[in-house]
Design a protein around this nucleic acid. Structure first.
Lengths: 341, 341
DNA sequence: CTGAAAGCGCTAACAC
DNA sequence: GTGTTAGCGCTTTCAG
């Protein structure tokens, strides 16, 4: 069997307490015994049992990350950076795909509470409001990523979607576009914020909003976006630019345009959001709005650790600023088109 | 504080033992007391402490997945399906990015052993051989994904890379190509197996191998592949088709070709491997070899659970067969080119 | 059918 | 500096 703290104690001719103290660097231990104990630990390949120490009220050094879909590159990136940063502090992260299903959300949370994880990071979508409130009530450390709950006292990290939407639209405006379509994600706060930014930019530019140019979809696949964009482009007064509220949506729009024989970027500019790897492999390369995912992951983990380690949890909301990344899918409005539509 | 089994016992006027039995469906309990206990459990929102039960020799119902990089779509998919399947059996999965760094690998494993995870799934790359052997020696449940160690007694799941390489090459041959270049990943067994399949297909077709057509790289980024492909295409006798040993490599080749003004697929056919989402968004859409990742994840988790639950661990090696997915990046060799080179 | 007692491996008071 | 004692919350013999 695996050696226990008692095996070490016996071998070293001391008590278990002393060994425990050495392991945790607590109390005063003579150099001599410390050294001796250390040697024995090495010799026997002793590994402290985290479970046992967790039972004495210590941390499990494990946190949970809940995301809608692990295979989605964006979430995968959150995961990566959260794990990377957590690792530095000895935290492991257990990943849970919820599939945006409230029942699964609840099941995961219950199970993980039973396993006594130290805290939760929830990203992007969480539908089960009662469970969320419960978590907060029980004062279980919790941080939200890109998940707005302004009415709840909970720490969070998010990109500034409103500003992002504004910047994207302004970029298109600056290229001379006036009829700008938008394909947005329904039901999420991020989604509506991006639309708000878009509207604000148009209003600031003195352009009247046209409801026909705003489309929303719940289907976030390329195909879904393609459908949406097809309608948008087939309408009488077709837009000269499209803002896809995420890269997938934007790429769907690009494909729809190609299908209809519309040339990019000469006859149509397209801009995305999130600046994923996909931007660089489509043709033309997709302009996009970058949010520093790396930073979001780190900050979220940082906030959570803070809550776990100190009881006086100072909760914070952090908003990270987006940046415009110009590539080849956006171009100055071609005059010939401007007047022909 | 959270209620314990004793709180339930007191409330129900029975002993903790009885409550434990009810929770675990063990021993014989009268319907009456069972019902009563259940009610109290509900009323008090009692949640069994998995840590405590794990300390009595039970499982932690937590397994670890080690992958080189969580942000890589392929690994993210493994993760997704493993988690999805594990969930059905109450298993949580903690995800660890190793960055292919032997030290990190060791650190992770040590930490997770201390946390008493029930088993490990290791995917794609694991450099720290001693740690791997140690794991096997300690009889800790372990399954490998796409990670060949034929000399080690360990269960594994993998795509048949040799066959995949063969099929990809045969597809190009069937289109009339004879000068087929290959860009391969260095150092991995999967990589060399795919090359072997490629060579075998050529030999079977009676075509002499040309070392100049085989390039390997350790840089698995698109840019790295692009560099590699540029050399390949700039050489005197340029190939009329390229087999990229994964989609990223293939896309790098496509970009290099475009850069050099080579038309796809008329002047050059390209095929990838893995059939990732990227295939559908590049232009022309990339033909590729599909391995059923979904199935790989499930099988791996299944194998692991088997090892965890029964001590008589029947280890298995499972090879999943690849399939050709033809899209637009591969086309019949154009005769005009055939004779002009 | 039910319960008393022992102990998993560790830590935290509190002595000495 | 070091050891004794008493649990953390649960499960598991073994009696009744």
């Amino acid at each position: 069997m695996k050696p226990t703290i008692y095996d070490i104690a016996r071998e070293a001719g001391v008590s278990a307490t002393t060994v425990s103290k050495v392991i945790n660097n607590k109390g005063r231990i003579s150099e001599k015994t410390r050294k001796k104990i250390m040697e024995i630990i090495d010799k026997l390949h002793y590994q402290p049992n985290v479970l046992a120490s967790a039972m004495k009220g210590k941390s499990t050094y494990t946190i949970a990350l809940l995301i809608p879909d692990a295979a989605n590159p964006i979430y995968a990136q959150y995961l990566k950076y959260i794990e990377e940063y957590g690792q530095e502090f000895g935290f492991s992260v257990v990943m849970c795909s919820t599939g945006s299903d409230p029942e699964k959300e609840a099941k995961h949370i219950t199970l993980l509470k039973q396993k006594r994880v130290d805290g939760f990071i929830i990203a992007s979508v969480f539908k089960n409001e009662p469970v969320l409130r419960q978590l907060i009530e029980e004062e279980i450390p919790l941080v939200l990523i890109s998940l707005h709950r302004s009415e709840l006292p909970v720490g969070s990290v998010a990109g500034d979607d409103y500003l992002g939407g504004y910047i994207a639209t302004e970029h298109l405006l600056s290229l001379g576009h006036c009829r700008i379509g938008i394909i947005a994600q329904e039901e999420t706060v991020s989604g509506t914020e991006r639309v708000r930014g878009y509207e604000k930019a148009l209003i600031n530019a003195g352009i009247e909003l046209d409801k026909n140019l705003i489309r929303t979809t719940t289907d976030l696949t390329i195909e879904g976006a393609q459908l949406c964009a097809r309608e948008l482009l087939a309408s009488g007064q077709r837009p000269t630019a499209i803002f896809g509220c995420n890269d997938t949506l934007a790429i769907g729009a690009m494909l729809a345009a190609k299908e209809l024989g519309i040339k990019l970027p000469d006859e149509l500019s397209v801009i995305g959001f999130d600046n994923t790897v996909m931007c660089k492999i489509v043709e033309p390369q997709l302009s996009s709005i970058a949010i520093p995912i790396h930073e979001m992951g780190r900050q979220a983990m940082g906030l959570l650790i803070q809550q776990i380690e100190q009881k006086d949890n100072m909760k914070q909301r952090i908003a990270l600023l987006p940046e415009l990344v110009v590539r080849q899918s956006t171009a100055r409005l071609n005059d010939s088109i401007k007047y022909s539509t």
